[in-house]
């Protein structure tokens, strides 16, 4: 079953078209990795899925709910707030620069949305947070503040925070790009763990080796269009010239 359907999606900023008529699906339990040079529209795509950017045309369906209700004079009319909120809770987002809340402890960062959005009582919210922290080996950091954590720890907490609301699909926008090289591994380990547990994910990354290992599906994007799509073999045996050129730069390093 498709958790996410992107249909003929376009996104324009004024005259600059960043995403040009893109379509793809993500099925339940799949990990989709999106590769491509910077400026190819990968991040914008994730931001559209999380409704952080308004789309120009096309539609996005998440867990059976459409983001766009209808088109009036080819202007997209977004669905009612209630449905958008549901879609919002079905998608989780992990940002490149973590965006943890600095004034809250690690535990509070995770429980805040459980308590105020999902209306869980404090005790069960904390239990859920601790359970996830335990699983990711960060339980000893539960009362720390983000400023006292390493970048890798911060990103792992951000992943837990996004997971805690039980999204149908978890989006990760270059989750290791602002980390020191020696901290990248611990974050990738966590993501691999999630992939094994069949958490549905879309990951934008430049870690090619990791992508090969974790991906069920790979999409290669450039200049706003999908150049090539396939399973993880695509990384070893790309067909398109642009994909080859891009991968060569990474694999030769």
């Amino acid at each position: 079953m498709s958790v996410l359907e992107v249909k003929e999606l376009s996104k324009k900023y004024d005259n600059l078209e960043v995403i040009k008529n893109i379509s793809f699906n993500v099925n339940e339990g799949e990990t989709l990795v999106i590769l491509g040079p910077s400026g190819s529209g990968k991040s914008t795509l994730l931001r559209c899925i999380n409704n952080l950017e308004k789309i120009t045309s096309g539609n996005i369906t998440i867990n059976g709910k459409e983001m766009i209700k209808e088109y009036k004079n080819s202007i997209p009319i977004y669905n009612d707030k209630k449905i958008l909120n549901k879609i919002n809770m079905d998608t989780g987002m992990v940002f490149q620069d973590f965006n943890l809340f600095p004034h809250l402890t690690v535990k509070e960062n995770i429980t805040e949305s459980l308590i105020y959005v999902l209306k869980m009582d404090k005790k069960s919210a904390e239990d859920r947070a601790c359970e996830l922290l335990q699983k990711m080996g960060l339980i000893n950091k539960k009362d720390s503040y983000p400023c006292d954590l390493s970048g890798g720890q911060k990103q792992r907490i951000a992943i837990i925070r996004a997971l805690a609301i039980n999204p149908k699909i978890l989006c990760m926008d270059e989750p290791t790009s602002s980390l020191d090289p020696e901290l990248v591994g611990e974050v990738l380990e966590v993501i691999k763990k999630l992939a094994k547990e069949k958490v549905t994910m879309i990951i934008v990354t430049h870690e090619i080796k990791f992508a090969e290992e974790v991906a069920d599906k790979v999409i290669f994007m450039d200049k706003g269009i999908i150049i090539e799509e396939g399973n993880s073999n695509l990384i070893k045996k790309p067909k398109e010239k642009r994909t080859k050129e891009f991968l060569k730069r990474f694999l030769n390093v």
Binding site: N50, N51, L52, N85, N88, M89, T91, G92, M93, F95, D97, N99, L100, F101, E112, S113, Y116, V117, L118, R161, A162, I165
Partner: peptide, 18 residues
């Protein structure tokens, strides 16, 4: 305050007031 804070809050389901 960085816009990322509001964006993270939005993706976690907080309304504007929260």
């Amino acid at each position: 305050i960085s816009i990322g804070q509001s964006e993270a809050a939005y993706t976690l389901g907080f309304n504007k007031f929260q």
